[in-house]
Amino acid sequence: MSGGHFLWGGKPITFETGESIAVAVAKAGVRDLSAGEGGLRRYFCGIGACQNCLVTIEGTLVEACLTPARDGLRVDAPEAGHD
């Protein structure tokens, strides 16, 4: 395993083995993780404490910074207003 791609809002993001979704997305230059709601989702603490980097995987919210990237994973911004 040396990484792969997952889909962020349908767009492929490259990651290397051992990277979390948050790190892969940050390295791809994505800063606003929200679906057009004024940047209320964004990477901040990196240790799961702030809950600011929540993303949706298979309908459930997870901290992007605690969730390992996996090849083929579909990751999306949560619906607006969801926390």
């Binding site: 964004r42 990477y43 990196g46 910074c65």
Partner: peptide
């Protein structure tokens, strides 16, 4: 609170 602002630890 803006995107792009993070903790140093982050």
């Amino acid at each position: 609170q803006l995107p792009g602002v993070m903790t140093a630890g982050g």
